[in-house]
């Protein structure tokens, strides 16, 4: 539930535009409602502009109706349908949308407290005049993270998933519609801090980037293998704290490669700036790739 207005019980997610304060609610059926709260005006005659665009992805499923009649047992109907079909179709739509606009979209995944938002803040500040960065922030509650991003100078939108433990493709699409990113820009999607569920939900990103900090256990990659296998890059953050910890870096890198032999690992500290240049070089190369691929 949205911590700001609390008026959307039963909704799946709330998208808050930090630039305008406008709220968009996505309900469980995919219906979308947008409205602004005039927080100085306590009349609360919610002028809900119910603009339900009804663009639900009506998956015209191929229910092969091979109806086998088993006497009086019942009728068995073969469905052969992917459970994640709706999300996957929307994710592909997002991917095509990004590709056509030469936009690099990254899905940042980690446990809570790994330093995702701090890495983003520093990335935005250090690349101020070089890259257009937009941020979609996912959290169960509060717009604190999106506010931090906005304060560092990038347009941000906050998605509150309520009780939901991950972002889904339709929420990202709603966030993108709100942000209206420029062609050639970079969209950072900061997923809900969780190393389990986000591995399963494609958002249409080019790459999943897993973030692990040295204040966590070095065995996280083998404890949560799905996430580290689904990610192409791992950022090992907070390395400035290594002298104070018993974190075995080599062991951690070895675990990560056991799970995913091709994972690219960048060791950095968003606090001191150490290693950040390697991350920026990778970003630059990926962004260039997104431009080239648009015309393939």
């Amino acid at each position: 539930m949205c911590g700001t207005c609390g008026c959307q019980d039963g909704n799946k997610a709330t998208v808050t535009n930090l630039q305008t304060g406008e709220h968009t609610h996505i309900d469980a059926g995919g219906n979308i409602t947008t409205h602004t709260h005039d927080h100085d005006d306590h009349h609360h005659d919610h002028d809900h502009a119910h603009d339900h665009p009804h663009d639900h992805d009506h998956s015209h499923d191929h229910a092969h109706t091979h109806a086998k009649a088993h006497g009086n047992v019942g009728t068995t109907i073969a469905l052969e349908q992917a459970i994640m079909q709706k999300n996957d179709a929307l994710a592909e739509r997002n991917r095509a949308w990004f590709a056509g606009r030469e936009i690099l979209a990254l899905n940042l995944v980690s446990s809570p407290g790994s330093g995702k938002t701090t890495i983003l803040e520093r990335t935005i500040i250090d690349n101020k005049n070089k890259t257009n960065i937009y941020v979609i922030e996912g959290d169960q509650q509060t717009a604190n993270d999106a506010q931090r991003i906005k304060d560092s100078g990038a347009p941000a939108v906050q998605i509150n998933t309520g009780t939901g433990c991950h972002l889904e493709a339709d929420m990202v699409m709603e966030g993108v519609k709100t942000l209206k990113p420029k062609p050639g820009s970079v969209i950072m999607i900061e997923n809900v801090g969780n190393l389990v569920c986000p591995a399963l939900f494609d958002l249409g990103e080019a790459v999943k980037v897993a973030i692990l900090s040295v204040t966590e256990g070095e065995d996280k990659p083998i404890k949560y293998p799905h996430m580290f296998q689904a990610s192409d890059v791992m950022l090992l953050n907070k390395i400035d704290l290594l002298p104070h910890l018993n974190f075995d870096v080599e062991k951690c890198l070895d675990y990560a490669r056991q799970v995913n032999p091709h994972i690219k690992i960048i060791q950095l500290s968003a606090k001191t700036g150490e290693g950040m240049d390697e991350w920026y070089d990778w970003l630059k190369a990926q962004s260039a790739k997104a431009s080239e691929q648009a015309f393939e």
Partner: peptide, 11 residues
């Protein structure tokens, strides 16, 4: 895989 293979309806 995460698929719905089939359903059986009551007669």
């Amino acid at each position: 895989e995460l698929n719905i293979k089939e359903m059986e309806l009551e007669a």
